[in-house]
Simulated scan of single mutants.
Amino acid sequence: MFPESERVSVKTTSPTRPLPPSSSRPAVTTERLIIRALVPEDAQAFHVLRTQAEVMANSAIGRVDKDLEETRSRLAAFVPPNDENTFHFAICLKETGEMIGVGGCHNLSSVFGWPELGYMLREELWGQGLATEFVRAWLNMWCELPRTVVQFDVHQKSAHSEHGGDEKTAEAVIAYTTAYNVGSQKVLEKSGFQHFLTWSVPDRRNPAVEVDLYGYRYFPNYHAAGKEMGDNVEAA
């Protein structure tokens, strides 16, 4: 998507891979949610989510699933034996245990070279602050994972510095959303993400026109240290 001239090699940290298996990931409880590992038995609830047109309009494929088998194939990426390649979870209502969404790191190497955060919630539950509650809890879970020093090729605008070399670069998590998805923009900003780049792509709903995408970045090490996003961080 982006030319090689816009990429730079950086030394940074990242959660040690393979990631912990889902069997070792304890459920996390927040004020209104239970965030737990996904299991194959979640297929039906996942299908309900992935057949809501407004939810899927903001997804990578831009359409609802054709049938339950397609949903099962999507779920397979997050359950054993593939669970150690993602850090993705079921989002459930604490009061009832009902699964209302999914979210987490579904891609360890986004188009920017960093791990990518994404989430989906059932449309009827939008606007209640549940997405923000999930994202904040998930970021805490992500920050607590063991780290390893790694070398990544990343988009230069996504890093705190646009220079590579031997100096360690602050670890980042990436998320992006469409310009018209104001709700997700607010969720990310309230959770500590910083907008760093805008670019255009064909609109999945109407490929004849283009839509702006907003890229956001989050620095786990800075937040773990209790620093503000701007402290010692060069904004793009």
Score class of each variant (00 low, 15 high):
residue 186 K to H: 08
residue 202 P to K: 03
residue 217 R to M: 03
residue 188 L to R: 01
residue 190 K to F: 06
residue 149 V to F: 15
residue 152 F to E: 02
residue 152 F to R: 12
residue 158 S to C: 14
residue 145 L to F: 04
residue 204 R to S: 11
residue 143 C to A: 10
residue 166 D to N: 14
residue 172 A to Q: 10
residue 213 L to N: 07
residue 144 E to R: 03
residue 217 R to D: 01
residue 145 L to Y: 07
residue 200 S to W: 15
residue 204 R to L: 14
residue 180 Y to T: 09
residue 208 A to P: 03
residue 159 A to F: 05
residue 170 A to M: 12
residue 211 V to C: 08
residue 181 N to P: 00
residue 186 K to T: 09
residue 187 V to D: 02
residue 160 H to Y: 11
residue 177 T to I: 04
residue 169 T to D: 04
residue 203 D to N: 11
residue 142 W to H: 12
residue 186 K to F: 09
residue 183 G to F: 00
residue 216 Y to D: 07
residue 193 F to N: 01
residue 155 H to A: 06
residue 141 M to D: 13
residue 203 D to H: 12
residue 212 D to M: 07
residue 213 L to R: 10
residue 191 S to K: 03
residue 185 Q to T: 08
residue 149 V to R: 14
residue 195 H to T: 07
residue 196 F to V: 04
residue 154 V to Y: 02
residue 217 R to L: 03
residue 212 D to K: 14
residue 215 G to N: 03
residue 182 V to A: 14
residue 171 E to D: 08
residue 155 H to S: 07
residue 150 V to H: 04
residue 195 H to Q: 12
residue 184 S to Q: 08
residue 210 E to L: 14
residue 178 T to H: 09
residue 216 Y to K: 06
residue 183 G to Y: 00
residue 177 T to D: 09
residue 185 Q to N: 08
residue 164 G to T: 01
residue 205 R to T: 04
residue 179 A to G: 01
residue 192 G to Y: 00
residue 179 A to V: 10
residue 177 T to Q: 02
residue 146 P to E: 12
residue 171 E to F: 10
residue 185 Q to M: 05
residue 189 E to L: 05
residue 171 E to Q: 13
residue 208 A to G: 13
residue 217 R to Q: 07
residue 219 F to I: 07
residue 192 G to N: 01
residue 197 L to P: 09
residue 149 V to W: 15
residue 146 P to G: 11
residue 174 I to K: 02
residue 158 S to A: 11
residue 173 V to S: 02
residue 145 L to P: 06
residue 167 E to K: 11
residue 145 L to R: 08
residue 211 V to Y: 07
residue 202 P to C: 02
residue 175 A to N: 00
residue 187 V to R: 00
residue 200 S to E: 14
residue 201 V to D: 08
residue 190 K to Y: 04
residue 169 T to L: 07
residue 206 N to F: 15
residue 206 N to T: 13
residue 169 T to M: 07
residue 192 G to S: 03
residue 157 K to P: 04
residue 147 R to K: 11
residue 163 H to L: 10
residue 196 F to E: 06
residue 171 E to S: 10
residue 141 M to C: 13
residue 189 E to S: 03
residue 184 S to R: 04
residue 149 V to H: 14
